[in-house]
């Protein structure tokens, strides 16, 4: 059954139209002298709220070490398939990192595909990928819009780490190594 919207009958002043137009013109005139509500962008920048989802970046731990272990979960979860990782192995002779075993050889995020959904940050088991405050990204070519590993670390910088999971693991291995053999 159609739903009928009951409309109130128009008053005389409404039907004359002109009083209504004049009232409207009063409103627009007020706006004419009201201060601007826009932001003059390149000079003025908006305050970025907490939890803002900007450009996805790779971060390092406070000791400047790579956190990503190239588990490729972000690549898997990425809805537009913007992430492309080439996994690599950390050689056994790299004393401080060998126990992590795995690190990305190449890590690319195609910002022409990225939809800033934040699922990669959500899924990351190593807290290595974060959508940070950067929101303005430009380039002249498609290739420029693909952030490679170096660029991702440059954008990401260092974030505090609560766990130092791999350090704990290493110290446990060393403690056991001394105790057992």
């Amino acid at each position: 059954m159609p739903y009928v919207v009951e409309r109130k009958p128009l008053t005389l002043s409404e039907r004359l139209y002109f009083p209504q137009i004049l009232a409207g013109m009063r409103v627009t005139l007020k706006h004419l002298f009201a201060p601007n509500v826009t932001m003059e962008y390149p000079e003025q920048r908006p305050a970025i709220p907490v939890g803002y989802r900007g450009v996805p970046t790779l971060v390092k731990d406070p000791h400047g070490r790579e956190k990503c272990v190239s588990c490729q979960l972000c690549e898997f979860v990425c809805p537009p398939k913007a992430i492309r990782i080439t996994p690599g192995e950390i050689p056994a002779d790299q004393a401080d990192r060998a126990h992590v075993e795995k690190a990305p050889k190449e890590f690319e995020i195609d910002m022409l595909r990225c939809i800033y959904c934040g699922l990669c940050q959500e899924v990351c088991p190593e807290e290595a990928i974060f959508l940070q405050n950067q929101y303005s990204l430009t380039g002249y070519t498609r290739a420029e819009m693909v952030n490679d590993k170096a660029r991702l670390y440059e954008l990401g910088g260092t974030l505090p780490d609560r766990h130092f999971k791999w350090d704990k693991k290493k110290s446990a291995a060393e403690a056991r190594g001394h105790a057992a053999h």
């Binding site: 588990c71 490729q72 690549e75 898997f76 996994p87 075993e101």
Partner: peptide, 9 residues
Amino acid sequence: FRFKMRVWF
């Protein structure tokens, strides 16, 4: 195959 690719891909 070690560390080359995750199997779900």
